[in-house]
């Protein structure tokens, strides 16, 4: 099986036109993206945006209505078992057997993976300061989360999938999770996480995909997002004047009809900005780099989708056989 796991040039995850409905509720609506090897990829969105569903489809735990998904070159629809044995997965609400001890659940899970699992699990639990003899039912929420993380990463997976890994955890455990995520990534492996913790994503992610109500609003590197988007605070000379038109794409405009207006723009050029600044009705324009949160809020409020930049949406390469 290991020879099927593709080399570094192929995407680790590739999703094409994925759609999924539950009854009359749309969970995923025609979503496509690819994840290159060695990055931290964050799926950002509010609860119920379709993040968990896409992760479950990738792991073969749910079936998509249409579209396709491959993980490490394996078709999620048919090779779920192989995918799950290669990938590490930290589910949203890790359900662990409360009656087992930390050591027992490691031993139990080791039965499903390769030979190095047990040793690595024990190394990780020592690092996370989890006593092997402790009953899982007696651990704190953070302790259980750490066990779940250790179980997911003890076979050193080339891809670590984490569904809302840090939500509901206290600061120290969150920090530990972020550190491990970074460490996994620094060792050349790929991390796919879903989250609604924007500041955390901003710290650790290479690529961010924002989903809302099953739709992919944007998928781009964090650097690109911040470079292509600007926040302009425009002050007009008086309240009655209209905001002059600009060639830049306005993603969101707030304070419409008042003197001070806030714009989130993308694909802007310095000329556009100067044109606006030179306009007689404009008193001043302040420009800042938006934080990820400002970008997120802007996209959410406007509901607009941005075209993916070329760097990320490399045409999905042929699925390795």
């Amino acid at each position: 099986m290991s020879q099927e796991i593709n080399n570094n040039t192929d995407p680790v995850v590739s999703i094409t036109n994925l759609s999924k409905r539950y009854g009359n509720q749309t969970a995923l609506d025609d979503i496509s993206f690819t994840i290159p090897a060695g990055v931290v990829f964050a799926l950002l969105g509010e609860n119920g945006a379709g993040k968990s569903t896409s992760l479950k489809i990738l792991l073969g735990l749910e079936k998509a209505d249409s579209g396709s998904a491959t993980v490490l070159g394996l078709d999620s629809k048919k090779r779920g078992i192989d995918i799950r044995s290669a990938v590490g997965y930290v589910p949203e609400a890790p359900a662990l057997y409360g009656w087992m001890t930390v050591g027992e659940i490691g031993w139990f899970t080791a039965g499903f993976y390769g030979d190095g699992f047990q040793n690595e699990f024990e190394r990780l639990t020592a690092e996370y300061e989890l006593p092997l003899g402790q009953k899982i039912g007696k651990l704190s929420k953070g302790g259980r989360a750490k066990v779940s993380l250790a179980l997911a990463s003890a076979h050193k997976p080339p891809l670590l999938v984490m569904d809302e890994p840090t939500s509901g955890l206290d600061t120290l455990v969150r920090r530990k999770f972020l550190e491990s995520m970074v460490d996994v990534s620094a060792s050349g492996r790929t991390v796919l996480l879903s989250s609604h913790q924007i500041p955390e994503v901003e710290r650790v992610a290479d690529i961010v995909a924002i989903v809302n109500q099953g739709k992919l609003l944007v998928c781009d590197t964090l650097d690109n997002l911040k470079q292509t988007m600007e926040q302009w605070v425009v002050t007009l000379k008086d309240e009655s004047s209209e905001l002059p038109s600009t060639k830049s794409t306005i993603v969101l405009r707030e304070g419409r009809g008042s003197r001070r207006q806030r714009l989130l723009v993308s694909d802007t050029t310095p000329e556009c900005l100067w044109q606006l600044r030179d306009d007689p009705v404009v008193e001043e324009v302040l420009v800042h780099t938006p934080s990820l949160e400002e970008i997120f809020v802007g996209l959410m409020k406007s509901g607009k989708t941005l075209p993916a930049s070329k760097r990320v949406s490399v045409d999905s390469p042929e699925v390795s056989s």
Binding site: L61, I83, Y89, P91, A95, L96, Y97, F112
Partner: peptide
């Protein structure tokens, strides 16, 4: 009830 069946499903087996 404890959703541990889900945990088993996450393991690489049918």
């Amino acid at each position: 009830e404890n959703e541990t069946l889900g945990r088993l499903q996450n393991l690489p087996l049918h």
